[in-house]
Design a protein around this nucleic acid. Structure first.
Length: 430
RNA sequence: CGGGGCGUGGCGCAGCCUGGUAGCGCGCUUGUUUUGGGUACAAGAGGCCCCCGGUUCGAAUCCGGGCGCCCCGACCA
């Protein structure tokens, strides 16, 4: 992308409504614009990050054996009457009436819908297990939206639903998702810690929340430093992995147990704040029974499938990652999800050697690069590149260009190196 | 949903108390300049002062009613 032709409206000053770092930076870096309270439009820089995160989530769900589907945002009230949640859900649910006075709603979650879909086509025990997921926009009419995309009303979410014949099967699905989640967060490049959680409105008796550590997190978290050394990508034995994840101490302040905490060696105790970016639940036959979803077992008897659901807040992750990874100058994107791997800063557009070298870099990097070809001051370009958080900056000025040299800056460390073009490209691509 | 605050050019704000027909910084346009960390000078463009009603000779300003947005709390992926 050439910056001169892009729709990336950066702001020098912070809009008054933005209070926390991620909200401020997302607005200033031109990633989002608010369209109504808690509702945002995603501009190219934001959209690219959102897509990258979604793609990693998708790949890890697929790897775990889940199947991608896409359910609608609008649902029928009748569906929710089957489970009894239409009345129970309260004002958080956005209710809509169509031209025929039919009652609809903008889905806050999809347990009912996926149960109906699977129920209507799965009749035999031979058809289970099933593990569908989708990545879709949801709406919860929060009383008080805030913190930008961290607490929006409309949000992009991955949610998966497991259907198994028995508890053992459901537990296996739960463990698979736990591993998939840890792999997902590791690939994104952030530390997320699973913590035993309440099951809340969805119901059930086994649940974990996944929290990203960030100083501005909404809840206090206590955990054993053993989490810092885990490597989900290397885990081969899922049972051992699950055992390890659930035996190391980690709790939000609500569930914190001082007695257990006291038994952890002091040098391993970590306290901080966390932002919840995912939650997994096992809830048994709550929905299958309420919605009369049963398959016929080998003995001809009805079996109500054991269910679980597994969510990741994709749009929330964007904000959460920024909370965990920024400095005074701006965002610091992890490499895996940066909107562009590198920015090319042309410090002297119009200078033949400088232009030629920039074009050479841009041709080599293609869609991975954001080329700042504007007739702006160098300082302006530096400041905006730092703000937007590109992992690498390829800085090209007439001085170096005359000798085929570029300056490579690593955003995370501030390290700057003068390198020949090929060496610089190798670093960026490697 | 309780408590508080704010709505004035794209963004940040002043003006409102003490009514007299709108201003500053940034951004934008043009020119000159500058050229490695948000440059300088000059000249411009751009505003139903959130909306409706009232008071008044006259309302951004006072009064009433809406709407929108933000903050604290309760709630929450």
């Amino acid at each position: 992308m050439r910056l001169s032709q892009s729709l990336i409206p950066t702001l020098k000053e912070t809009p008054a409504e933005a209070q926390i770092a991620s909200h401020r930076l997302m607005l200033r870096a031109g990633m989002i614009r608010q369209m109504a309270s808690g509702i945002y439009a995603w501009l190219p820089a934001g959209q690219r990050v959102l897509s990258r995160i979604a793609q990693i989530v998708r790949e890890e769900q697929d790897a775990a054996g889940a199947q991608e589907v896409l359910m609608p945002t609008i649902q029928s009230a009748d569906l929710w009457r089957e489970s009894g949640r239409y009345e129970a859900y309260g004002k958080e649910m956005l209710r809509i009436t169509d031209r025929h006075e039919r009652e609809l709603l903008y889905g806050p979650t999809n347990e009912e819908m996926i149960t109906a879909i699977v129920r209507d086509s799965v009749k035999s025990y031979r058809d289970l297990p099933q593990l569908p997921y989708h990545i879709q926009w949801k709406f919860r009419d929060e009383v008080r939206p805030r913190f930008g995309v961290l607490r929006g009303r409309e949000f992009l979410m991955k949610d998966a639903y497991s259907f198994d014949l028995d508890y053992a099967g459901a537990l296996a699905a739960y463990k698979k998702m736990m591993l998939a989640y840890m792999r997902t967060f590791q690939r994104i490049g952030i530390t997320a810690i699973p913590m035993r959680a309440d099951t809340g409105a969805i119901g059930g008796d086994l649940s974990h929340e996944f929290h990203i550590l960030a100083p501005t997190g909404e809840s206090g978290v206590f955990y054993d430093s053993a989490f810092e050394t885990g490597d989900a990508a290397q885990a081969t034995d899922i049972e051992a992995f699950y055992e390890r994840m659930t035996s190391i101490y980690a709790a939000t302040d609500e569930k914190h147990d001082e007695a257990v905490w006291a038994q952890i060696p002091p040098e391993r105790r970590r306290e901080g704040r966390g932002i919840e970016v995912g939650q997994i639940f096992y809830f048994g036959t709550k929905y299958s029974k309420a919605m009369e979803f049963a398959v016929i077992g080998p003995d001809g008897q009805k079996i109500y499938p054991e269910m679980g659901s597994y969510g990741i807040g994709v749009s929330r992750l964007v904000g959460a990652i920024i909370e965990a990874s920024h400095d005074e100058a701006g965002i610091i994107w992890p490499d895996a999800i940066a909107p562009w791997r590198a920015a090319i800063l042309n410090l002297r557009p119009g200078d033949a050697a400088t232009d030629a070298l920039c074009e050479q870099l841009y041709a080599a990097l293609g869609a991975q690069a954001l080329y700042d070809d504007r007739a702006e001051r160098a300082g302006h370009k530096f400041a905006e590149a730092d703000l937007m958080g590109h992992p690498w900056q390829l800085i090209v000025g007439p001085r170096g260009a005359a000798n085929g040299m570029v300056e490579l800056k690593r955003r995370a460390t501030g390290e700057r190196l003068e390198l020949p073009v090929d060496a610089a490209l190798a670093r960026v691509c490697g």
